[in-house]
């Protein structure tokens, strides 16, 4: 069982992910934006972060820079699940992986719940 911090602005989609992850035994904390994510991580350290890059009032990349600046969160695996198409993300993919420690970038419309469940299991298998 892992603690997943889910950053997803769309509440209906977030509810869907939460139910899927809960079904396979994970605990999910859902927040809609960057500041709330920092607060939530402060209250309970997540094992993994699953996040959209397009956040209200906060750019996801800026958020990740801030998140990584806290030493205790520096090694938490981050999975990006976004509606931004891969071709556009290609420009910043090296920054996401090399500088911000993103372990996987998923294109949300094409990434099934099963894909995410498997990915989270792989990313947290050592925990």
């Amino acid at each position: 069982m892992s603690n997943i911090l889910l950053i997803e602005p769309n509440t209906l989609l977030a509810a869907t992910y939460t139910r899927a992850f809960a079904h396979v035994g994970h605990h999910v904390v859902h927040v809609a934006g960057g500041q709330a994510a920092v607060d939530a991580a402060d209250r309970r350290m997540p094992d993994i972060l699953l996040m959209e890059l397009q956040l209200p009032a906060h750019n996801g990349v800026e958020f990740l820079h801030e998140f990584r600046s806290y030493p205790e969160w520096a090694s938490i695996p981050v999975v990006v699940n976004t509606t931004i198409p891969p071709l556009i993300l290609a420009d910043i993919e090296s920054i996401l992986h090399a500088d911000l420690g993103v372990v996987a970038v998923c294109y949300k419309p094409r990434t099934t719940l099963l894909d995410l469940v498997r990915l989270i299991r792989e990313c947290t298998s050592g925990i």
């Binding site: 989609l13 869907t16 419309p109």
Partner: peptide, 8 residues
């Protein structure tokens, strides 16, 4: 996407 994931 929401519809697809809900169906799944």
């Amino acid at each position: 996407t929401t519809i697809a994931r809900q169906a799944e």
